[in-house]
Nucleic acid binder design. Structure first.
Length: 321
DNA sequence: AGAATAATAT
DNA sequence: CATATTATTC
């Protein structure tokens, strides 16, 4: 029997920004629209290499109420039917320009860069798995994911990278020889994110069919009504807050002193705290090729999070109620 | 839709 | 300044 990594459990509780990070909003110095209108965001802070920004989000996940639903593996929805109609979560709260402050200026504003958290990526993979490689196109994936605020380009971009990753994996597992370790530093970096989500078997084996019984994507509509505490939207909202904070750090630069073409002289350190999960206990040691297959980073992550952290939430909203 | 390239963030 | 990640463009 090979359970393989087929039974990955749904875990969306991994790491979610503590409410403290999202709640505190005291940036009313500059209106988001105004700042954004000037196209001032992160002006690339000091070129000094070596910034002291450590993640402090290692505290116990304070989340315990309305989690995201979604994980997979639970076993449901064995019907890989195309997304006939996700839900109304599409742009339900896609007001990225709102967040918590002024939720009015939803125009001419540029969205902040989307951060692909492991959770989000997980959902992405689930979607692709259920759609099948052929049907897994940006538009479809996006629809299936039902993540508000997520655009087709977001998915397309991520999909592009993901495919590269898969290709890399194929080469490694097929050509063999390598111990499953990344070849380049760049690969290692990208692998890290992708390793957070299990890669369906048939992904690497063109032609191979998904194991019967293996079901992917027990998708559940994200954001229900107002319990959308944390979701991609929240992430985006959080980003906005951060963004605003950064701008605010600019000490209220002359809102109107920005001539076209000219820009403020920004030279400060900006801090952004993505909801990245704390680095595992670093378990994998090197010393030679041990096994060439799917990176076992996942295991590391699982162990670390399951052991060090805690996973208790495996349930999700009923979805359609 | 997909790949290449640009921009931006860390 | 280099690298990584996401956005835009072709």
């Amino acid at each position: 029997m090979r359970e393989d990594e087929a039974n990955w459990f749904p875990r969306w509780e991994e790491d979610l920004p503590s409410p403290e990070e999202l709640m505190p909003l005291s940036q009313t110095l500059i209106t988001p629209d105004l700042a954004l209108a000037f196209d001032i965001r992160n002006p690339n802070s000091s070129p000094q290499h070596q910034q002291q920004q450590q993640q402090q989000i290692q505290s116990p996940i304070p989340i315990s109420s309305g989690q995201l639903g979604g994980g997979g593996g639970g076993g449901s929805i064995p019907s890989p039917s195309p997304p006939s109609q996700p839900h109304s979560s599409e742009f339900d709260s896609a007001e990225l320009g709102s967040g918590n402050l002024g939720d009015e200026p939803a125009r001419t504003l540029k969205r902040p860069r989307l951060v692909w958290t492991p959770q989000l990526h997980k959902r992405f993979v689930d979607a692709v798995a259920h759609l099948g490689i052929k049907n897994a196109v940006p538009k479809t994936i996006m629809q299936l994911m039902s993540v508000d605020g997520l655009t087709r380009e977001n998915v397309a971009s991520h999909l592009q990278k993901y495919r590269l990753y898969l290709k890399r994996m194929q080469g490694l597992s097929a050509g063999g020889g390598n111990g499953g370790g990344p070849l380049s530093a760049a690969d290692a970096a990208t692998d890290h994110l992708f390793a957070s989500a299990p890669v369906p078997h048939h992904f690497l084996h063109p032609g191979a069919r998904p194991a019967p019984g293996d079901h992917y994507l027990p998708f559940v509509p994200v954001l229900h009504h107002q319990q959308q505490q944390m979701a991609a939207a929240a992430v985006l909202a959080a980003q906005q807050q951060q963004q605003q904070q950064q701008q605010y750090h600019q000490r209220q630069v002359g809102q109107f002193g920005s001539p076209p073409g000219g820009q403020f002289e920004h030279g400060f350190l900006a801090r952004q705290l993505p909801a990245q999960q704390p680095p595992p206990q670093q378990v994998h040691r090197m010393g030679g090729p041990v096994n060439a297959q799917i990176p076992n980073y996942v295991e590391d992550l699982e162990s670390a999070t399951a052991g060090g952290g805690r996973k208790v939430l495996t349930l999700f909203p009923t979805g359609y109620d």
